[in-house]
Simulated assay, not measured.
Amino acid sequence: MLRAVAMMFVLTLPMWGQAQELLVPHQHHEWASFPEGSWKQVKQVTETFKEGELVSSMTTTLTIRLKEVGKDYIVLEREAKSEVSGQVFEKPIREFRSGLNGQSSGQRVRITPGGEQKISILGKPYNCEVRQMEVLGEPTKITGKVFYNASTPPYILRREHTFKAEGAEAPQKEMVAEVVALNKPYPVLTEIKTVAFIVQKTTSADETTETVEAQCTEVPGFVVGTWMTAYDAAGKLKSKTTVQLLNYEVATEPANATTSKTGLFRNKRQQRRVFDDSE
């Protein structure tokens, strides 16, 4: 998924001062903008194909909870249960600590301002700050551009990334993700909310994936729906994955939220919506 790919990119070298050393500030981050204790539950269904025929299907229910938000990191707790061919597999609860842009320990990135550039969404121009990045010290050179607009959710309106092996002439993988629609009504559990739609295409020598994602900044993690299709080098269908939001909650902020580590939490009331899954 889009955010899962973005988690590969790290930003640890400040170029704009302390408040801007991250890809986006806390209040525009898909998790750090929510109070600790906020969570979401999703159902992911992955179908695998061979020669056009369905060969397997796996359904996974994931519950992801925000445990901690720091100045430059988050801690997420993940609980998962998968069902394959009628068998249910419970997975242990795990915690994951990452930088606000997904960096693992030891990774560094050089990030440089790339000026301003306009992009068009359905014929309307949007001014964006261009932020260029390069992952340092890795065998695969990862470079990219991010187009950021602080007043237009979901804030990152376009991403371009290239993966290139050391010494290679051609990239191993290229990814482009862009917002194609903004402020669209969309059913989020029992309510109609405003979402943005993002289209991503990732290409490599042996696979092409096409993904459509719906993002709502009122829901932890932003993502409320994903539809991904993968094709092999010959253009034959390999897999389909859908992600459906089942439930979520935005935790009530503590009274001292304005003096927290980040000081950037939004003032959000507690919310919970229950999905009636009749399947």
Rank of each mutant, 00 (worst) to 15 (best):
K81S: 12
P92L: 01
A80E: 07
S85Y: 15
Q103D: 12
Q103R: 07
G106I: 10
R108Y: 15
L100F: 02
E83L: 10
Q107G: 06
S85C: 13
K91E: 10
Q87G: 06
V109K: 11
N101L: 11
G86H: 04
E90L: 08
Q107F: 08
Q103I: 08
I93E: 07
E90N: 10
R108F: 15
E90K: 08
I74F: 03
S105Q: 09
S85M: 15
G86M: 02
I74S: 05
G106P: 04
G102T: 02
Q87H: 13
S98R: 14
K81Y: 07
Q107N: 06
S105C: 04
G102R: 02
V88S: 02
R97C: 08
R97F: 08
Q107K: 09
E77N: 00
E79V: 12
A80D: 06
G86E: 02
R94N: 11
R110Y: 05
E79W: 08
S98D: 09
V75C: 05
G102E: 00
K81C: 10
R110S: 13
K81A: 11
Q87V: 15
K91C: 05
L100P: 00
G102L: 01
I74V: 13
I74L: 08
I74T: 02
S105A: 10
I111T: 14
G102Q: 00
F89Q: 13
E83P: 04
F89A: 12
E79R: 12
S105R: 09
A80K: 08
S98G: 13
G86F: 04
F96G: 04
V109D: 15
R110E: 12
A80T: 09
G99S: 11
G102Y: 00
R110V: 11
V109I: 15
N101W: 14
V109N: 13
R78H: 05
S98I: 09
Q87F: 14
Q87Y: 11
E79H: 11
A80S: 13
E95N: 04
G106E: 09
S104K: 11
E83A: 12
L100H: 04
E90G: 09
F89C: 06
G86A: 04
V88T: 06
S85N: 15
